[in-house]
Design a protein around this nucleic acid. Sequence first.
RNA 1: GCGCCCUUCGUCUAUCGGUUAGGACGACAGCCUUUCACGUUGUAAAGACGGGUUCGACUCCCGUAGGGCGCACCA
Length: 474
Amino acid sequence: MSSPVVTRFAPSPTGFLHIGGARTALFNWAYSRGQKGKMLLRIEDTDRERSTEAAVAAILDGLTWLGLTWDGDAVSQFGRATRHREVAEALLARGKAYRCYCSPQELEAMRAKAEAEKRPIRYDGTWRDRDPSTAPAGVKPVIRFRAPQEGETVINDHAQGRVVIPNKDLDDLIILRSDGNPTYNLSVVVDDHDMAVTHIIRGVDHLTNAARQTQIYLAMDWAVPSMTHVPLIHGPDGAKLSKRHGALGVEAYRAMGYLPAALRNYLARLGWSHGDDEIFTTEQLVDWFTLEGIGKSPARFDFAKLENLNGHYMRHTSDGELLAAWLAFLPHIEGGPQRLAVIDDAMMAKLLKAMPGLKERAKTLVELNASAAYLFVGRPLVMDDKAKQILADGGHVALDELLLVLEAVSDWTAPTLESAVKAKAEAAGLKLGKYAQPLRAALTGTSTSPGIFDVLEVLGRDESLDRIQDQAGQ
RNA sequence: GCGCCCUUCGUCUAUCGGUUAGGACGACAGCCUUUCACGUUGUAAAGACGGGUUCGACUCCCGUAGGGCGCACCA
């Protein structure tokens, strides 16, 4: 038996859990679950200026909503600073690091000069071999890693393949700040090692860091974990994902009415594939997920496809479950709480009865919520402009004619309501097709489009008649 | 500027030297439905460009173009 797989998701709490992070978490989760291993969660909060408690909460909440569970408690990277310093000292003792007394101003000047001369922007190694006794008094030094200057660093990446980075392009990065706090590249290596992480799965934006980190592992004689760098998600225009595109927190997707299972499925197919399979369960994802199935090119985020998938998931969710999902969703949208407040047992029964007709017409919970409006409208009904237009377009279709259609319906237990309505309408000498749209507008008070027969069925004969009369009386 | 990576229908992708280049979303057209949908059938739609290697390249190599990422006392 090889050692058990341990993956980790390591977000920095400087904002919400954005969609790219969510996918990274999903991949880590799916891989660890499929390998019967563990997924750890580490909050990379060493940047005290930008890290917030609210962001930590948002990330945990987002992961939970998406159904991605982690093993053990979330680890705070900041809380491990002492250990990081210890390793920095160890590197110093091994001659793999040195103190640098350059001031931020000097470094800035160094960068500006390099840029002006169109040379690579790198630390010039001023203190790499300089005698520390020549250090200026009163300057607090940083500790820099003594990176190899010759040769190359190889990353055997499961998604990217064999990536070779020339060592001359890796400068001596700072591992311990002048205030004694560790920097990212040191902390990551130390934590991943201490937490016994076997597989690192993260965005390609960390690929160059992977080379630097590899050198730190080597300097400490630690085993380098398996690495997988996942391509990034781009906006519809191929450029970086902006807020307008979808670089939103997962809570925004929740508010847009997407189901966690649908989002999981969609995200899984962005940058990963399993033959021609498009729609699959989370169990199948876990079962099928391999690192080799991850592609190398960036993917664009496509809301149309997400919507389609979400609609599919909604239609295939049982009425009870979908009702529960909608109820849980209501607090997250405008007007939702008010609607939630008026739901009693009778309303629950109506909703459940209406659900089959509602769900096949909605692609998101937002749409489901809109179509369900007819159950919540007060009387007399207030029609929106589009609904009025529909009634007006009926032209010669008078409200009392609509009433006649309904009155013609006396038998609600016919094979299907639809056939009953049609038969009775026909017996009254009316063509239902002509009345369908105005009838719906009159019954629902809106232009939203639940199926007319569903509306009749859910409302029942008496309420339906009442509603038409309301309209006729206006 | 330097380094690394990417490039198949509009989009997500399959293909791992030999296929009529397949699927899905979207689009368009038809069917179903005397409503809205759902469902269903079909159509259009792709290997960035230029060189090689090979009996044979989407697939391997080189170059060009375009795009992405990285180059902080951020993570």
